[in-house]
Structures are given as structure tokens and as C-alpha cells.
Design a protein around this nucleic acid. Sequence first.
DNA 1: CTGTTCTCCTGTGGGC
DNA 2: TGCCCACAGGAGAACA
Length: 273
Amino acid sequence: MPELPEVETTLRGIAPHIQGKSVVSATVRQSKLRWPVPEDLNDILQQQNVLSCSRRAKYLIIRFQTGILLIHLGMSGSLRIYRNGHDSEAGKHDHIDLVFDDGTVMRYHDPRRFGAFLWYAGAAETHPLLAKLGPEPLSDDFHADYLAQAFQKRQSPVKSALMDNAVVVGVGNIYANESLFLAGIAPSRPAASLTRPEIELLTEAVRGVLQRAIEKGGSTLRDFVDSEGNSGYFQQEYRVYGRHNQPCLQCGHPIEKSIIGQRGTFYCPQCQH
DNA sequence: CTGTTCTCCTGTGGGC
DNA sequence: TGCCCACAGGAGAACA
């Protein structure tokens, strides 16, 4: 499940291989993703050069002369680079190929099809999906003052608030769980009930846990190229996520699981208050 | 506004 | 051991 660190790793994995290159063809084998993939993607992209690759929240943005590709990996999406397209036969869930002028293929793979592959004839900043997103968690705009203000009137569980993209982007279920554990805060607490010191701890926990995961991801970059395997994403070790009934790594008390906002929520009742 | 529920989809795993 | 069904999850949309 690609969280922000995996998306960032994907960006770093694909960018050097497609930057500046020209699209020879685009093949769409399955257009039913979260939103329909443009049927005329080939007509749109042919002959266009990749001007830049970037990321906003968990969206990848590939900029061309006349617009941008907006790619979201959803739950199970991945992008792979193949240096010789004809060497790699498309598998069951290989939905989209972009073939470049030097033979490089960028392939979108997504079994559950929660992802998105959209074309937008405009600048990224004005796209509706990106326009009202909160700050990037690793940017200077994400700090305790900001979070305190954002939480001020929120009665919803702090975990839900943390996962709200209008508050801060890129904090999915896994890292929301992990951050709250690191900050020693119970996930069910109303966001507005957090004290200033707790908000400071939480801000640093979010930043730290994502930063460390991105650093780990760096070592797996080669997996994005010419890889036969399909794991792709690094297996991070989690302190609470998925550790229901296992002993807390800090105090030994069994990790508990509950449901908050329809999502599995893991926490140590002894370490988090 | 704020908060909650629904929805898309398929591979995995827990239960029997 | 084998089968089957519930579950998991990002996040926008719809709704109260």
C-alpha cells in the first residue's frame, strides 16, 4: 500500500529514466481505474517531452508541453521502468505503458485499480484534486503552530484529523498509527484536546517517521528498473501497525486494535494517552 | 463547515 | 488440507 514514502521513492525511481524523453506511444489496456483513463492518451502524449517529474501529496505529476499527467497509485499501484519494452510482456494488471523514444517503457501496474492516471491540460496548481490540499508534512509549512490552528476546532479523533488531506497530506493509515504511537497520543483523542507539547511531539513524529521511511526507500530504488520481482516496495518495520495482540516494543503490553473512521487502528493503551 | 458513511477492486488470510 | 468469504485500504463523493 503505497504511502507517501513509497510515492516519493517511486518519483525518484522513475524520474531519471523518463526526464526529457519523448513519448513514442501510450498503450491503455485497462481504462477502468478510479476515474476513466483518457481513451485518447496516445494521441495526447505522442511526440511530447517529459519536462519535469514531481510529487504533490501522493500524486505524481509528470509535466509535458501541453499539460500534466496526474498519477495516483491508490492501494496497490506501482510504476516500473523497463529499458527494453519488447523484453517485458505485459501481465494481468499492467494497465498502461508509456514508451519513450529510446525504448524505455514506464509501466503502470495496479491489481485493485484504486489508482488514477489522468491527463490535465493545465498547470498542476489549478487542478481540482490538488487545489485544496494541506501542506506537505516534510515542508517548512508543516509546524506546530500550523497544526495547533488546524486542530483547534476539531472534535473528531486526532487520527482522523491527521489523515485528512486538508490538514496535512500524505499521512495514511500506517503512518498515522505510527506517528501517534511515537508521540504517545491515543488515536481516539479529539484533535482539539491535544496540548501544545503534544502537538509539538506529534509534528516531529510525523516528520520523523516519514523522513526515515523515505531514507529506507532510497536503498530499493534499483527495484524500479528491469525488475523481475514484484515486491517493489520496501517492507518497513512498524511499531504498532499490524501488531494486534503482539507485545508493545516499549512496555510489553499487548497492542490493541480498534476501528476509527472505518480504518484499522493500532495502539498501545499503556504508552498512548 | 464538520463529521460520517459509502464506494471502487482483487489478493490475501483467517476461520472452519 | 482445502475452500470460501470477509477484510483491507486512499480518498473523493455523497449525505446528514
